[in-house]
Every structure is written in C-alpha cells, then in structure tokens.
C-alpha cells in the first residue's frame, strides 16, 4: 500500500458516498445516469468475485463489501425508490455498444484464460468507459448539479491517483499490470474535459453548463 493508492481508494469511496447521500438527502436522482450506476455495479460484481476465493486483508475485503453494497443501493434508489425522479429521457446511451465489445476484448486480451481472470479483465475494461453514459447525459441536459460535479471529480481523481500508484509500484516493487494501466489511462483521459470545466467553472462558484 502507498499514499497514492490509499488516497485513491478514499477518493473513490468519497465519490460513492457523495452520490449515495445526494440521492438519499434530496430524495432525487435527477441528472444521474442510472446506466452508469448499473455498469459500476457490474464492474464491482465481476471484479470482486475473489471475495469468495482469496483473502488479502481486512481493508481489502471491507472496502470491496462497501463498494458493492453502495453500488447496489444506488442502483436500487435510482430504479426503485426514487424512480419517479429518474430522467430516463436523457439517459439514453446505448450501453450494449460498450458491454459487448468489452466482453469480447476481455476474452482476447487477458493475463490468464480462467473465468475469474477474464471477469476481472472485463471489469477493468468496463470501468474505464462506465462513466460515458453519465457524461453523455450531462452533454444532453447541458448542465449538472454542483454536487454531481463533486461526485465526478472524486471519481475521476481516484483513477488518476491509481496511475501514480502504478508508477510508484513499478519503481519500488517492479510491479506493473499493463491491462490495468492502459485501461486506467483511458479512463482518466475521458475525465479531462470534465476536469477542465470543473476547475474553470465549479471551483469558481459557477454552475457547470454546456456548451461552455
């Protein structure tokens, strides 16, 4: 464990909690892409199946349960509890165009052709594009609530911190995982446009609205 990975995990946890609290407190999921949240639940489910097979640490296991629990709670609140506030008309990204090719890619490019490893690879690839429905929805509605931009900021920051974690681990441990690194770079690049708007607008107290 290193400082980049720890702050990355905490940033990820902050994002997940911010979103959960936003929906719970405002009793509304307006502006939130349910499709992205379903993809994140799928990412955690396929990545954390090793909860059943191997124990790494109390931290690792507890964080996995928290992530999975929050992800499903968020999906439940969007599609069941606060379904009336779900903006389905703007959440129209064709996720099948993501899931199917990524499923194929996971079969072709992986570290080991075993079920758990292929599911882990699928999860890594899927996570890198899982935010697209959310970014697409914001581009369609033309704006985002400020709390939603904070959610996206911490979510994007977490993988950027993981990139630093992988540099650290390569330098100090000689560890590197090309699949995770390439997917992590793609994932972080997808946030660059948002990061620019977040820093130039939201941090200056303005509302995030598109086109700029």
């Amino acid at each position: 464990m290193n400082i980049f990975r720890l702050t990355g995990d905490l940033s990820h946890l902050a994002a997940i909690i911010i979103l959960l609290l936003k929906i719970w407190k405002t009793r509304s999921c307006a502006g939130i892409s349910g499709k992205s949240q379903i993809l994140f639940a799928l990412v955690f489910t396929t990545r954390y199946l090793d909860l059943l097979t191997s124990f790494i640490s109390l931290y690792n296991t507890s964080m996995k349960f928290i992530y999975i629990g929050c992800a499903y709670a968020t999906v439940y609140m969007i599609y069941a509890k606060f379904k009336a506030t779900y903006d389905g008309n703007h959440d129209t990204f064709r996720v099948e165009f993501l899931v199917v090719p990524i499923g194929g890619l996971a079969f072709l490019v992986n570290h080991d052709f075993s079920p758990l490893e292929i599911l882990w690879t699928f999860s890594i690839y899927l996570e890198s594009v899982a935010i697209l429905p959310q970014l697409f929805m914001i581009s369609k509605t033309g704006e985002a609530e400020t709390i939603t931009t904070h959610y996206l900021f911490f979510l994007g920051l977490y993988r950027a911190l993981y990139l630093m974690n992988w540099i650290w681990r390569f330098y100090f441990e000689g560890f590197f995982d090309m699949i995770a690194i390439v997917a992590g770079v793609v994932q972080t690049i997808l946030y660059c446009d948002f990061f620019y708007l977040y820093v130039t607008k939201v941090l200056k107290g303005k509302k995030l609205s598109l086109p700029a």
């Binding site: 990975r5 995990d9 990820h12 090793d50 191997s54 790494i56 690792n60 964080m63 996995k64 992530y67 570290h111 080991d112 075993s114 490893e117 882990w120 993981y162 974690n165 000689g174 560890f175 590197f176 995982d177 090309m178 699949i179 995770a180």
Partner: peptide, 10 residues
C-alpha cells in the same frame, strides 16, 4: 514482470 494473478488492488 508478469503481474500476479492474485490482484491485490481494489
């Protein structure tokens, strides 16, 4: 080095 198949990251 080949990555460990036991993934220790979240």
């Amino acid at each position: 080095s080949a990555p460990p198949l036991r993934h220790d990251e979240l």
